[in-house]
């Protein structure tokens, strides 16, 4: 998938960066298509007939009230929770048939931060699949991990135990793990939880860069404050899809009211 005219891309990068990059990779990375997904937790119908597309080259947010099923949707797409019905396809096959191209940053609470591992250990986990069975990590893998650490500004913390890092630093290490993995699809569950302003900036910079490279970036986003402006597309969820598409169209007051009930109307008015 090399570009036939690299010089052209270089000159136009400044101007048409987003559109250009997305367009020339479009043939490489197809959108993820969720079709009629139903998920149950025993009797609880957590997701009902969810159909959405997640496009490459865009930063997509899943938004909705507490317990709306945001994490559930992400996990069901990733095969971490079985779906009662529906399918998730990506290009010619299912998403799960292409696992080595997927990376997932779980919700912070799901990780035991006292696990005896250093930041370096965690980033190298992103290289486990590429390294292959019964093998040690190659020099390439180590370089990829070093580059990833540098990109998130954590190169000086490689040898720190993860438990001794701040919440923001921990999140950046997980992002570095996903970068080291060189995945084409990145799913993040509430990446801003417990994170400082600097990490927030680094995180969105990198997510935008990844989207510009034509990758698929999907994040559960809890916060309806100004950070939502970072997303190009929004999936508004409340057990079913209330609306999805371009951010500002989805975040209209009528959809928000439908998803959140009365109180969100004020927010939508304030944000508009």
């Amino acid at each position: 998938m090399t570009l036939s005219m690299p010089s052209l891309q270089a000159t136009s990068a400044g101007l048409f960066r987003s559109a250009g990059a997305a367009a020339c990779r479009a043939e490489g990375i197809a959108p993820i298509q969720v079709n009629h997904l139903d998920v149950f937790y025993r009797d609880l119908h957590a997701l009902e007939d969810v159909s959405v597309a997640v496009k490459p080259g865009k930063l997509t947010g899943i938004v909705g009230p507490n317990g709306a099923g945001k994490s559930t949707l992400m996990k069901a797409m990733l095969g971490l929770i079985p779906a009662a019905q529906g399918e998730v396809s990506w290009g010619q096959t299912s998403l799960l048939a292409q696992r080595e191209r997927l990376a997932y940053l779980p919700q912070r609470a799901q990780i035991d931060w006292r696990y005896p591992a250093t930041a370096w250990d965690v980033v190298m986990m992103g290289r486990v699949r590429k390294a292959g069975w019964l093998r040690k990590f190659s020099a390439t893998s180590k370089r990829a991990a070093e580059a990833a650490l540098k990109r998130v500004g954590m190169e000086d913390f490689a040898h720190r135990p993860i438990g001794q890092l701040s919440g923001g630093q921990q999140q950046r290490i997980f992002l570095a793990r996903a970068l080291a993995q060189e995945a084409d699809v990145l799913f993040l569950d509430e990446p801003l939880t417990g994170v400082d302003k600097r990490t927030e900036a680094v995180l969105f910079d990198i997510l935008h860069e990844l989207a510009d490279e034509g990758k698929i970036v999907l994040a559960v986003h809890h916060d309806l404050g100004p950070t939502i402006k970072n997303f190009d597309e929004v999936i508004l969820l409340n057990r079913e899809v209330v609306a999805s598409g371009v951010r500002d169209e989805v975040l209209q007051s009528e959809f928000m009211q439908q998803a959140y009930g009365g109180w969100a109307t004020n927010w939508a008015a304030a944000a508009a």
């Binding site: 996990k75 990733l78 095969g79 971490l80 696992r99 080595e100 997927l102 990376a103 997932y104 940053l105 779980p106 799901q110 990780i111 035991d112 696990y115 591992a117 965690v122 986990m125 992103g126 486990v128 699949r129 793990r177 993995q181 799913f187």
Partner: peptide, 13 residues
């Protein structure tokens, strides 16, 4: 990888 982050490991294949 598996014992630290089982879901991350499963997603990565």
């Amino acid at each position: 990888f598996y014992t630290f982050d089982p879901e991350g490991a499963q997603v990565a294949g």
